[in-house]
Design a protein around this nucleic acid. Structure first.
Length: 612
RNA sequence: GCCGACGUAGCUCAGUGGUAGAGCAGCUGUUUCGUAAACAGCAGGUCACCGGUUCGAAUCCGGUCGUCGGCUCCA
């Protein structure tokens, strides 16, 4: 039997969240909410109500749709029920007793009309597992027994009075058992903590997180924009954002050149024939933009590309390949378009048009493992340079029960083994996730959280035996006979859009010097300093930093110094150079850093030395 | 796509049935200033769009579009 320790902040270092008091508290909060809902709306059908990372939810089928204002009443009822100090008691029962309880219409909330989900849950419980209910009861002044009984594995806290620092957050639709073909239930999200301070603190953190949201910062810092006239999920990159893209692509390009990649460039559209051959038309059609079909039928049908691979394959297969050429590594910052569902588009973290830092490696079976390891090494270099340390590694494999995949099982097995063996060899800490493969092969993904704690798939490496087969790719081996190469698809950033969105949130817009769209802002104090300021700017722009000219701007508005500093600070410019009479006379600048404030007067050459 | 919420000036927001408001940004003028917002004046809006209810709609109702939080799906 597990013992539970109580501690401030929910969990101790050594304790899993699932074993914590906070976890039980939130689970009980879900039950308390269900009880309140059931009293206010007696015809509801309850389904499941688990604790989650920052709170809890309960999925409920309502007879009438409910709205956010209804949450106030539910919250109020929860507070009342909490104070009644109902004991929460566990009952273990046999399967038959469980069924009788669920169908017993004399117990509030139970009975055949409202228990379809509970019955399904009961059926899903394995034979060898204990079946338990949790019962919260009280007797009112008139002596009437009130009761909330729920089929539940538990565990829970001892009394409803422990659940008092909570807040209902939002309403959402959620499909029963996560399946789109099932009925959509109403999910109510809430959060709960042990103390009012912790609850306040959490709500405060949420507010803070909103301020580092990449959509907010993207607007404030002038990185990118959207226009309804252009279309949902189609970002327009502003000068500063475009600069960021260039810095990032230059960096990666150079890393790739060092590793023997070759650049290629391919079109944005292709004849439908290409994608029929690749299998995208069958497997990916619903994610593609509408096809460009000629009404008169005179012209071929064209497709806006959702992936770059078929183009790179065409280049590979355009001539005979010898084993001596392999591995062939074609790299392209390839812009693709995918028609994401309208409810899924999220700023530049999930856009409908985005640029992958894509490459395709064509390798012999002998080379597969070392090339795979080389790719993982590149990804580590990239993560390191970008300063990303918090990520999860996921190996996405085929879901055996789904038919959305192409290719033979042998190939899938070989590819999956290649990935896991390489990971084991590298000592990577990864988890295997069935159903998260691409339709053509298994993959290794890096998962990173955004400001609001949502997880995003970033970099990816995919081993693919299937497209080479569909396109009948070959190389001539040492034995003078044709062999089939294996493909590795890989993107260390994942996409520029998603990576920039994430970096923006990670750094709260204060990009490190090498990434900052404006690295230095020169702030002349009065008109008579403008000319010299421009001179210094050109001088700085002629210097290379990280292989690129320094990015410098001059704030030549007729504003006070205080205002110029404030705005440069809000724009998160790493360095400000203040130029006034002192600077003209002594040939110096006042240096101010974004982080450390005033660094004093110094000669330009000294400042430049300090930069590197 | 589905469930819920929101849409007022370039931005952030106030305005719940009776003549559209504030701060910042913009423009004009004054100020030429040393480390996070100078001062004054001016201008700026089919209250997302379309339709309805009403003597009268930013406000109430319906639809469309867009955005946000989820679900499903994904880089």
């Amino acid at each position: 039997m597990t013992t539970y320790s109580r501690c401030k902040g929910g969990t101790t270092m050594s304790e899993r969240y699932e074993d914590s008091y906070l976890y039980r508290l939130r689970h009980s909060a879900a039950h308390l909410m269900a009880q309140a809902v059931q009293e206010l709306h007696p015809q509801v059908k309850l389904s499941i109500g688990p604790p989650i990372e920052n709170g809890f939810y309960y999925d409920i089928e309502f007879a009438e749709p409910i709205h956010e204002e209804d949450l106030t009443a539910i919250e109020k009822r929860m507070k009342e029920l909490s104070k009644l100090d109902q004991r929460i008691q566990r009952m273990e029962v046999t399967r038959e007793e469980a069924k009788q309880l669920i169908l017993d219409s004399t117990i509030p909330g139970m009975g055949a009309e409202t228990s379809e989900y509970k019955l399904q849950l009961l059926e899903a419980i394995p034979e060898d597992q204990v079946i338990s209910f949790y019962d919260q009861q009280r007797t009112d002044r008139e002596g009437t027994l009130h009761r909330f009984l729920d089929l539940c594995r538990g565990p829970h806290v001892d009394s409803t009075k422990e659940v008092k620092n909570f807040k209902l957050m939002s309403i959402a639709g959620a499909y029963w058992r996560g399946n789109v073909n099932n009925k959509q239930l109403t999910r109510i999200y809430g959060t709960a903590f042990e103390t009012p301070e912790e609850l306040e603190h959490y709500l405060h953190l949420l507010e803070e997180a909103k301020r580092r949201d990449h959509r907010v910062l993207g607007k404030e810092l002038g990185l990118f924009m959207f226009s309804p006239r252009v279309g949902t999920g189609l970002p327009l990159w502003l000068p500063k954002g475009a600069t960021l893209r260039h810095v990032m692509t230059d960096f990666l390009q150079q890393e790739q050149l060092k590793r023997g990649y070759q650049p290629v460039v391919t079109p944005h559209i292709a004849s439908i024939k290409l994608y029929e051959k690749s299998g995208h038309i069958i497997n990916y059609r619903d994610k593609m933009f509408p096809f460009m079909e000629d009404e008169d039928g005179d012209k071929d049908t064209y497709i806006l590309k959702p992936m770059n691979c078929p183009f790179h394959i065409e280049i590979y297969s355009s001539q005979m390949r010898s084993y001596r050429e392999l591995p062939v590594r074609y790299a392209e910052f390839g812009t693709v378009h995918r028609y994401e569902q309208s409810g899924e588009v999220t700023g530049i973290l999930r856009a409908r048009g985005f640029t992958q830092d894509d490459a395709h490696l064509f390798v012999t079976p002998d080379q597969l493992q070392s090339e795979f390891i080389g790719v993982v090494d590149l990804m580590q270099t990239v993560l390191n340079k970008l300063g990303l340390t918090e990520f999860r590694v996921r190996v996405g494999t085929k879901d055996p029960s789904s038919d959305k995949y192409v290719g033979h099982d042998d190939n899938w097995t070989a590819a999956t083994n290649a990935i896991t063996e390489a990971c084991d060899k590298l000592g990577l800490d990864y988890e295997v996730s069935p159903g998260d493969a691409a339709f053509y092969g298994p993959k290794l993904d890096l998962i990173i959280k955004d400001a609001l704690g949502r997880e995003w798939q970033m970099g990816t490496v995919q081993v693919d035996y299937n497209l080479p087969e569909r396109f009948e790719l070959e190389y001539i081996g040492e034995d003078s006979k044709p062999h089939r190469p294996i493909m590795i698809h890989r993107a260390p950033f994942g996409s520029l859009e998603r990576m920039i969105g994430l970096l923006t949130e990670q750094y709260a817009g204060a990009f490190p010097l090498w990434l900052a769209p404006t690295q230095i802002s020169i702030l002349p104090i009065a008109d008579r300093h403008f000319e010299k300021a421009e001179e210094i700017a050109s001088e700085l722009r002629s210097r290379l930093f990280d292989t690129r000219p320094l990015r410098v701007n001059v704030d030549d508005r007729r504003e006070t110094l205080g205002k110029k500093i404030r705005e440069a600070q809000l724009q998160k410019v790493p360095f400000m150079l203040i130029l006034g009479d002192r600077g003209l006379e002594e040939n110096t600048v006042g240096v101010r850093s974004r982080e450390d404030g005033d660094l004093g007067e110094m000669r330009l050459s000294d400042f430049l030395e300090k930069l590197v």
